[in-house]
Structures are given as C-alpha cells and as structure tokens.
Design a binder for these strands. Sequence first.
DNA 1: ATTCTCACA
DNA 2: TGTGAGGA
Length: 147
Amino acid sequence: MTKTDSTLDKPIYTISAAAKLLNISVHTLRMYEREGLIVPFKKESNQRLYSQGDIDRINCIRNEINESKISINGIKTIYSMIPCWDIVKCTKKEREKCGFFNGSNLPCWTYNHNQNICGTKTCRDCIVYSQYSECNNVKELIKSIAR
DNA sequence: ATTCTCACA
DNA sequence: TGTGAGGA
C-alpha cells in the first residue's frame, strides 16, 4: 500500500512537533519558509501546520545541507529548475507573461502565478509542489530532463 | 503553554 | 543560526 497524496498533505504537525521530528529548531523551520524552500499551511491565526509531505521534503533539504554540503541558495536554484510550465502544461501565451518561466533562480512556488493556469489556487494545491516533496522525485525529474 | 513577528550585543 | 522582546 502506498500512501495517497491526501495522506501526505494533511496539515497535522504544529511547528514544535515538526521541529522535534526533524531535530531542528522552530527558528530554522521558519527560516526555510522565508527562503522559499517550504510552504506550510497557515491557519487564520497565522499559525503554521506541517504535513507528512512537508516533513519528507525538509528531511531531503537537511540531507542536502548536511551530506551534500549544498547551501540554501543552492537548493533554491535546484528547485528553480523544476519545469513547472511543462508539468502543469502552461500555454505559450501563459509562458510569455510568466515571470518564472522567463528566467528565475527561485522555486516556482515563491511566485503568485495569477495570470496563468495556476490561477488563484495556492502552491500547496499544485502537483509541482506536492509531487516533489521527496528527493528522489526531484532527482528523477532532473535525470529525465538531461536525457 | 505555544506560536508569531521583528530585531540584533 | 540563536536569543529575546512584545503581543495574541
């Protein structure tokens, strides 16, 4: 049995719970968010909630920082290479007026793509964000582009 | 008790 | 990345 996307996307962990699971500080968790590496759920009170997918994604980030010695800027650059326009099948017109498509070194989910296929939905609801919570998915994607 | 934002000896 | 103030 493989976990469904909905299972991975349930907002269940408070920031303190997530921090304990990951063995990092809540401060670091907020920093990753400021840097655009993660997009946690937000309650009306602005309180953050994290899903299991978020935990997986942050574990991936921690590995890149600790083992591969990749900086946060490096990770942002890697994420910026995810061809979201291809994954969500943006039209040519949409690409033309998309700031992300036209050169960006930041993750696509740091943008509000209101003028294209993304519409007003949040990046959390986008497969580009949810599908690449795992290191292997990012790796496979990059491999598929390279060949 | 927790979390949030902002600032910084 | 850490710590503390000030408010909710």
